[in-house]
Amino acid sequence: MFKEYDFDTALKVIEKNTHLRGGLVETLRNLADTFGYINEELYPVLADTFSQSEAGVLGVVSFYHDFKTKPRAKNVIKVCMAEGCYARKSKNMIKVLCDTLETDIGEKREDGEFEIEEVFCLGNCAVGPNIVVNDKLYAEVTSDNVKNIINKNCKGK
């Protein structure tokens, strides 16, 4: 899913975007897509490239929900908390999901195997409740089938 972070690859990602006008968010987007998070050792480089302070870069990173500053778990599960899924009884399913993975919404499990991230609307509201398991979207997830979906798609346990 995500590549192991290394500085040289990160530099290449940044270099690809230097010509973009106002490209900091887009660059961070690409870094997040590649590594899953933004390593803080990149702040000086980003600050230099986009002519602003390191604090300015941190300000942008911290503003957006998608930009994490810590390495991600092996398996990232996104779960929709919005009303479309709520109306289709997502509440019970979310409870079972948390119990199964032994972690909480917004938390990474201590052993780094699982992480549940809350999202608000995946645009799939007619067939919810929806979860995303390692980039694959599942619809009609219920408290009965959620365990199966996790087992089928996740490494580790």
């Binding site: 929709c80 919005a82 009303e83 479309g84 899924c85 608000f120 609307c121 645009g123 799939n124 509201c125 007619a126």
Partner: peptide, 11 residues
């Protein structure tokens, strides 16, 4: 940036 829950026409 179609963020509202329950909307998917843009998508």
């Amino acid at each position: 940036d179609e963020g509202d829950s329950g909307t998917f026409s843009d998508r």
